[in-house]
Design a protein around this nucleic acid. Structure first.
Length: 897
RNA sequence: GGGCGAUUAGCUCAGUCGGUUAGAGCGCGGCGCUCACAUCGCCGAGGCCACUGGUUCGAGUCCAGUAUCGCCCACCA
């Protein structure tokens, strides 16, 4: 390719689609089991098929892709298992809404089978979209192994696990208080009920005694549930109520008499010290009920309206209406003693945010204690590590207080519970295969449990079910345990913890060794990006405007050690007049910078970079090599330790500031000179740029493929077919690296000083100036002399004198740089007032510096206790600074200041 | 009620083992369309590192406490 074909501005769209196709056609994401190579594997946190991906997914999948590409280049057989999650409640909700909107029908109108067919249809569309999005983002998954949590194989795994746990006595069915969503009309696990603080009330209500005495006053936050009260509890030690224990009260608004019981649960200091007991609608009351043999009374339907047991006046009312009516009536009857403000926490359905109802019902549960024990141990042993480490505590704390897991859901979309009931003899059969005939009485009146399982009951098997478990497949053997899991901290309990338990229980081994928890993606106001808030940014929109590489790079650049990520992005439809800050510009600009550096090399070389002989590399040539080698080491180290932002910053600084700002500027005149040197520097620069593409490839896969390919053609050096399959660069350590970097930095400092002086006294770079440099020592003199042409080119110098013994010249602006004094001649252009002010400022700076070192060195304990090298360093700094100050002062004096 | 995180330049954030006068990007000011890039280059201004104490020769960094903001967990009605 010649420079003519390279556009001036990088166009990510064409490049990205091209390479996406290339990777797919060549199956570069595919990993083979049994290659004998060391393996590295990741299973994707399967996105819900409910909707398209958002930026949170973009971040997480970028991180995984970085790891996978990095390890692949390092020579690992790298498997990234992609797939999607059926997301029971969420998906069912979405399809139900769609059905209502488009056809005005409910799922009941359709019937179970027809409805499920509709959901599958929906899943085929969105699931496909998600996979397309992942591909567009550049994710190098093993697409041939894509899985869905309701695939046949995964469903078999779910059934197998249910049966095994049941047979082990770890699954049981029972009537308990669970979290119930009245809108979704299903049970939820404890984790699925999100608690939020609400400003509510504490109502004090008088319950008169059955014998007509005054009775007592109870305190409640939920007056409507009093219709289901079966007792009132007081603390046994509470003398205020001792006389009432065992007596009956008349439950207001009903005809029922209820006993007063004594129970330790009651805190005499809270409220009135008397608690109404509603076993069917409160978990604590349920426990009290068990202890006192009280029969629970359910007063609500599953949809949150009151049922017949609540009484004819209330039947059919919603929870909210019933509360109002109860309070009104109590108030009329003079039984509402007091209303206090009270803050308490209320559960909400994590899918539809409806207030959940503690509800007594028959459900299936997993006994967690025995599963949790080994899962605690592997984390304590360090076999599973969390990054950042602070999440370890969160995990352990939850694990150590784990409660049984309610796994049945009253939904249609999901894995059917593999339990069958005989309609004749009541036999309960848990089976891997469908049951049609009762195993006990041979009746054919056998029905399957209508409920489905919690979505997470399939997700927790993901690291092994996706590789074919319970079969002992080659893939399972090769890729389990997986290496790293990258996910959001919100799902530590839902998913991470449970996967560890399932892995240990069913595979006898941890599911992954490292868990990386990334930050939450938020908008510029700090709000979590979500569809319901409408502040989500569509990755495809960002990809369209900035490119996938730019999106990836920008997000990685601002992700630090699992801190939350704040995105500011104005969509095209935003219509804002002022050009706001855009998070993704940094990546786009960087891509453009790299593109243009390549374009420069192509234009200088004409697209052909030959080899050269007999050219001895000079300081700059060796310096850029040295910097490159350091960068390799540092980036490798950063990626190994999950410091992704550091890896992005390192390659950014190297390419932009070392390579483009210095080295490419340095080689331009050398290229112009032609000959062997031309070929040499072009090769040197191109090789380093090409190698840098490997370092950058995990973060910006598309651009790096394109640039690497262009350079490889020009260099006639294709070690591999693409960067993706190229080996990760190895640093070639140079013994004299420190000296090289030190000398180059002297040169940079000198050039910087000259530029600074010129700028301060208004001599633009377009106007060449004469400069005198007075080096401080032999070394400096040698370095400056050897590199005189660089100084002249980069600082726009017409004539450069190097003289260690030169006196301060008239009509010049002076400055101090590292190891030298600099004079810029300003014949006719000089603004001496400005120059005086500039020098005075320099003098002040220097004086402050000297004072701070002097105070340090005059501190006796510093000198005696600090390491010798530190003290020595301070002394050197002081003497240098004093020298510089002296020079500045004499310059200032010469100007009459 | 417990736990975690944050607090550094106008904005968004880095800052690893405690050791130059604390950095970047954006924004701002000045200069420059020099034959890669104005999505650019050069130069610059801008900081009580939230506060208080402690450890130390030395603290943005370690410890304790305080304040503000955010998040997570918890069955006191």
């Amino acid at each position: 390719m010649s420079s003519k074909e390279m556009e001036k501005v990088y166009n990510p769209q064409t490049v990205e689609t091209k390479w996406q196709r290339y990777w797919e056609e060549h199956r570069l994401g595919h990993a083979e089991a049994g290659t004998g190579k060391p393996t590295y594997s990741i299973v994707i946190p399967p996105p819900n098929v409910t909707a398209v991906l958002h930026l949170g997914h973009a971040l997480n999948n970028t991180i995984q892709d970085i790891l996978i590409r990095f390890k692949r280049m390092q020579g690992y057989e790298s498997e990234w298992m992609p797939g999607t999650d059926h997301a029971g409640i969420a998906t069912q909700n979405v399809v139900e809404r769609k059905l209502a909107r488009e056809q005005g029908k409910t799922r009941q109108d359709l019937g179970r089978e027809e409805f499920i067919r509709e959901v599958w249809k929906f899943k085929e569309e969105t699931g496909g979209t998600i996979i397309q999005q992942l591909k567009r983002m550049g994710c190098s998954c093993d697409w041939e192994r894509e899985r869905f949590t309701m695939d046949e194989g995964l469903s078999r795994a779910v059934t197998e696990v249910f049966v095994r746990l049941y047979e082990k006595g770890l699954i049981y069915r029972g009537k308990y208080i669970i979290n119930w969503c009245p809108r979704c009309q299903t049970a939820l696990s404890d984790e699925e009920a999100e608690h939020q603080e609400h400003k509510g009330n504490l109502w004090l209500i008088r319950y008169p005694a059955a014998d007509g005495a005054e009775g007592l006053v109870v305190a409640t936050t939920r007056p409507e549930t009093m219709l289901g009260d079966v007792a009132v509890a007081v603390n046994p030690a509470d003398s205020r109520y001792a006389h009432l224990v065992g007596k009956s009260l008349l439950l207001p608004l009903t005809e029922r008499r209820i006993p007063v019981v004594a129970d330790d649960y009651v805190d005499p200091a809270f409220g009135t010290g008397a608690v109404k007991v509603t076993p069917a609608h409160d978990p604590n009351d349920f426990e009290i009920g068990l202890r006192h043999n009280l029969e629970p009374l359910i007063v609500m339907h599953g949809d949150g309206t009151m049922n017949a047991a609540a009484g004819p006046e209330f039947e059919g009312l919603t929870r909210e209406a019933a509360r109002k009516k109860v309070l009104d009536l109590l108030s009329e009857q003079g039984l509402l003693v007091e209303t206090k403000e009270h803050i308490h926490s209320v559960g909400h359905c994590y899918r539809c945010h409806t207030v959940t109802e503690p509800y007594l019902s028959q459900q299936w549960f997993v006994r967690m204690k025995t599963l949790a024990e080994p899962a605690v141990q592997v984390v304590n042993d360090g076999r599973v590590r969390f990054h950042p480490e602070r999440w370890t505590k969160v995990y352990l704390n939850w694990m150590e207080n784990i409660r049984d897991w309610c796994i049945s859901r009253q939904l249609w979309w999901g894995h059917r519970i593999p339990v069958y009931y005989c309609g004749d003899c009541g036999n309960v059969m848990v089976s891997r295969e469908p049951v049609t005939i009762c195993t006990k009485c041979a009746s054919s009146k056998v029905t399957q449990d209508p409920d489905v399982l919690d979505t997470w009951f399939s997700s927790w098997l993901w690291p092994f079910s996706t590789f074919g478990w319970p079969e002992k497949t080659e893939a399972l053997q090769a890729f389990y345990p997986t290496s790293t899991l990258s996910t959001a901290p919100e799902i530590i309990f839902f998913w991470v913890a449970r996967m560890i338990m399932a892995g240990l229980e069913f595979m006898g081994d941890i599911p992954f060794a490292d868990v990386y928890l990334h930050g939450t993606v938020r908008d510029d106001k700090g709000r979590k990006m979500s569809k319901s808030l409408g502040n989500g940014v569509d990755p495809l929109e960002v990809i369209e405007s900035h490119g996938a590489d730019a999106m990836r790079f920008s997000m990685i650049m601002i992700t630090s050690q699992g801190q939350d990520v704040f995105i500011s992005y104005e969509s095209k439809s935003g219509g804002s007049k002022h050009k706001g800050h855009n998070t993704f510009d940094i990546g786009r600009n960087f891509a453009n910078k790299i593109w243009n550096a390549t374009r420069l090399l192509m234009s200088l070389s004409g697209g052909e970079i030959g080899s050269s002989q007999g050219v001895e590399p000079d300081l700059a040539d060796r310096w850029i090599r040295s910097r490159y080698n350091h960068t390799i080491d540092q980036i490798t180290e950063a990626l190994e330790s999950f410091r992704f932002n550091d890896s992005a910053r390192l390659i950014y600084e190297f390419l932009w500031h070392d390579l483009c700002d210095w080295y490419l500027e340095i080689i331009k005149p050398r290229v112009a000179r032609g000959g062997d040197e031309r070929a040499f520097v072009l090769r040197n620069a191109s090789e380093i740029l090409s190698g840098s593409m490997k370092l950058l490839h995990p973060i910006m896969p598309f651009l790096t493929e394109e640039v690497w390919s262009i350079l490889a053609d020009a260099l006639r050096d294709r070690g591999s077919d693409s960067v993706m399959t190229a080996p990760w660069p190895q640093a070639d350590h140079m013994a004299e690296s420190d000296v090289i970097e030190r000398e180059m930095s002297m040169l940079q400092s000198l050039i910087g000083s000259i530029r600074n002086i010129r700028s301060e006294v208004n001599v633009p770079l377009g106007q060449k100036a004469d400069v005198l440099v007075v080096p401080a020592d032999d070394d400096a003199e040698r370095v400056f002399a050897d590199n005189r042409s660089y100084i002249m080119d980069l600082a726009s110098v017409a004539r450069l004198d190097l003289d260690r013994r030169a006196a301060r010249p008239e009509k010049s602006a002076a400055g101090i740089s590292d190891r030298s004094e600099v004079f810029v001649f300003l014949e006719g252009l000089v603004d001496f007032d400005r120059e005086r002010a500039r020098l005075a400022k320099e003098v002040e700076r220097r004086r402050g510096f000297i004072a701070s070192i002097e105070s340090k060195l005059s501190n006796e304990s510093f000198v005696s206790r600090a390491p010798e090298t530190v003290v020595e360093q301070e002394r050197r700094k002081l003497s240098d600074a004093r020298d510089e100050l002296e020079k500045l002062l004499s310059n200032l004096q010469a100007l009459g200041g």
